[in-house]
Design a protein around this nucleic acid. Structure first.
Ligand SMILES: [Mn+2]
Ligand SMILES: [Mn+2]
Ligand SMILES: [Zn+2]
Ligand SMILES: [Zn+2]
Lengths: 155, 155
DNA sequence: CCTCTATTGATAATGGTTCTCATTATCAAT
DNA sequence: ATTGATAATGAGAACCATTATCAATAGAGG
């Protein structure tokens, strides 16, 4: 057996999907785990480059693609022309599901979970109704509110 | 007074915003009015080119930008790498608001309004709560369900 | 170690969108 | 109807996030 790279929670899942565990993939997932921001591919690239200077931007994109496909990471479009990524689940983020408030002024993105309970209730009803009516198998949803944040609404 | 170009419902609003009424803008808005599809800029360009061969793609983009800014047209990202546009309101589409089901298999987009009543109720509550808690002025929302349509779920 | 091959980094290519600029069209004032 | 100020346009270049290419490298089972 080759040198062991550790036993982080995600590695089993990773190997189970037939993917190899590499230094690049480890550090990219680390970067996403260590922040609550909504990082772009380039954000991640620059962040990861500090402790892994040789990494290429293409590897970041390729890894993110895999992570999204596996459901470990969520990919969003907040309207600024680049994709944003966020850890979907993890060691400390088991029940991380939330929705977004997006400021049209400063482009800030606010995570909120405050009203999730009621929403989840309605979503369950809506998804059930839609599934039956359109015979559509719902896998995920995107709920985003656009407007002006505290600072931008006064200008 | 120059040749009158008609008195379509939108022209007053257009001039009121300081924009000139042009043949290109008229025909682009026509194209959006005459369909219930979710057209890309290039879709519109090709469609409009048939009755206005000289039009340029840049004009389509510029016009769409204005229409979105004015709130006459909605811009969506369904994850296929290009923006999609849809008439927000119009002569026959006063209460056109709806949400989307997006098939990850065939990329088909289904408009639905069936369960809007309950959703509208929850949205009102949620928006009120969020506005107060985050002092955020909500202007619009995007609600999309992703999954597999009738045809794609069996494969 | 050894082999097989998935992964990687550098870089070119792609493709949707935006920008530039000389020309044209709109429209309020004549 | 004509004019003049300037907004709008078309052609094409530029931009830039994302993908594809490919030779070199590294993961993992034996
Ligand atoms: Mn978030
Ligand atoms: Mn629609
Ligand atoms: Zn703001
Ligand atoms: Zn489908």
């Amino acid at each position: 057996m080759g040198r062991c790279r550790g036993n982080a929670w995600w590695q089993g899942r990773f190997r189970g999907c037939g993917y190899r565990v590499t230094a690049g993939r480890e550090i990219i997932l680390d970067a996403l785990t260590k922040t609550d921001k909504h990082l772009s591919a380039e954000d991640i690239y620059l962040s990861v480059k500090k402790s892994c200077p040789g990494i290429g931007l293409a590897t970041v994109y390729r890894t993110l693609e895999i992570l999204v496909e596996m459901g470990l990471v969520l990919k969003f479009d907040f309207g600024d022309g680049r994709a944003r990524y966020e850890l979907a689940e993890g060691p400390n983020k088991e029940a991380n599901h939330h929705h977004h408030l997006i400021c049209a002024g400063c482009k800030r993105v606010i995570d909120y979970t405050d009203f999730i309970e009621d929403e989840v209730e309605l979503l369950r009803k809506t998804e059930k109704g839609l599934s039956e009516k359109y015979n559509f198998d719902i896998k995920s949803h995107v709920i985003q509110f656009y407007g002006l944040c505290e600072k931008c609404k006064t200008k």
